Deep mutational scan, measured.
Amino acid sequence: QLNAMAHQIQEMFPQVPYHLVLQDLQLTRSVEITTDNILEGRIQVP
Rank of each mutant, 00 (worst) to 15 (best):
T34E: 01
V45M: 12
P46D: 11
N3K: 14
D36H: 14
V21T: 03
A6F: 06
Q1E: 14
T34M: 02
D36K: 15
T28N: 03
T35N: 04
H7C: 13
I33T: 08
L2R: 03
Y18A: 06
L27I: 14
H19M: 09
M12F: 07
G41I: 03
L22V: 08
T34D: 02
Q44L: 12
A4H: 10
Y18C: 08
I43G: 02
T34A: 01
P46Y: 11
V45N: 10
D36A: 15
Q15N: 13
L25I: 07
M5K: 06
G41R: 06
V16D: 03
L2Q: 04
I9Y: 00
Q26C: 12
Q23S: 09
Y18P: 06
L25Q: 01
G41Q: 06
N3R: 15
Q1M: 13
T35V: 15
Y18M: 11
Y18W: 13
Q26V: 12
E40K: 15
A4C: 09
V16S: 03
L20A: 07
V31L: 10
P46C: 11
Q8E: 10
P46H: 10
E11C: 14
L25Y: 02
T34I: 03
Q8S: 09
M5T: 04
E32Y: 10
I9E: 00
A6S: 04
P17F: 05
L20K: 05
L39Y: 06
I33V: 12
Q44Y: 14
Q44C: 10
Q26F: 14
D24T: 03
N37Q: 01
Q1L: 13
N37W: 03
V45W: 14
Q10Y: 14
N3L: 15
T35R: 13
I38G: 01
Q10F: 14
Q1P: 10
F13Y: 08
H19Q: 09
V31I: 13
L20Y: 07
L20I: 09
S30L: 03
H19G: 07
L27Y: 11
Q44I: 12
V45T: 11
P17K: 04
L22G: 01
A6M: 07
T35A: 10
T28A: 02
L2D: 03
H19A: 09
E40W: 13
E11D: 09
Q23W: 11
H19K: 08
N3E: 15
L27P: 00
R29I: 06
E11Q: 14
R42Y: 06
R42S: 04
T28M: 03
V16K: 01
L39F: 05
V21I: 15
N3S: 14
T35G: 04
P14N: 05
D24S: 05
Y18N: 05
T34W: 02
S30T: 04
R42I: 06
Q8V: 11
T28Y: 06
E40G: 11
L20D: 05
L22C: 08
F13C: 05
T34H: 02
V31D: 03
I43T: 03
Q1H: 12
V21M: 04
E40V: 09
M5P: 00
P14I: 03
E40T: 14
V21Q: 02
F13Q: 00
G41W: 06
H7S: 11
R29K: 11
I38C: 03
T35Q: 07
P46A: 11
L2T: 05
D24K: 01
